[in-house]
């Protein structure tokens, strides 16, 4: 649990400037909370990493090949029947189900990975206790900076000087 200073900015440009200044000041911007994605923000915060797409690829491949294996095993090994004289291993049409199933698995695994890597679902969070944090889902661009051991008020002043509407303390 990190104690942070939360600064709310009226627009993303102000937030981005604040991030740069915070880093110049030697403080650590932990996270930012914005109503919509802001280009470059995650990179500026050093948080531009996610394994979600790798999970999706894995889920999709597993689903697809698993489905194909199911088809092949059932049609060739387990229940070889003559259907209209077609070959048992009718690969020409066996790719369809694996494709559909693979995409479905990629989507489901992706959604699960998104939630899991984001630590969701988590219905409550200490940040929600901070008054005004709800603006982050509407029109407030909130930056969370790790509260420095020394001179926290310098950081606060700096943030206020960077167009912050308010600065409050919180935990994250």
């Amino acid at each position: 649990m990190t104690r942070v200073l939360l600064a709310c900015f009226p627009h993303p440009e102000a937030l981005m400037i604040a991030v740069r200044r915070v880093k110049e000041e030697g403080a650590v911007p932990v996270d930012a909370f914005t109503p919509h994605p802001v280009d470059g923000l995650a990179e500026a915060l050093g948080a531009a990493r996610t394994p979600v797409r790798k999970w999706m690829l894995a889920g999709g491949l597993l689903g697809g090949f698993g489905a194909y294996f199911t088809e092949w095993f059932s049609a060739v090994i387990d229940l070889p029947i003559n259907a209209g004289g077609r070959p048992l291993h009718s690969w020409e049409v066996f790719y369809l189900f694996p494709f559909e199933f693979g995409v479905l698995m990629a989507g489901i695994v992706g959604a699960a990975a998104l939630l899991a890597t984001s630590g969701l679902p988590r219905l409550n969070h200490p940040l929600f206790d901070v008054q005004g944090f709800e603006r982050s889902s509407q029109d407030g661009f909130i930056l969370a900076v790790e509260q420095p051991e020394r001179h926290p008020e310098r950081l606060r002043d700096m943030l206020l000087a960077s167009e912050a509407l308010w600065v409050r303390e919180g935990k994250t």
Partner: peptide
């Protein structure tokens, strides 16, 4: 689901 509009979330989300 407790969505907090975190920049990290937004990044993964996008």
């Amino acid at each position: 689901l407790g969505w907090r509009n975190s920049a990290r979330h937004w990044y993964a989300y996008e």
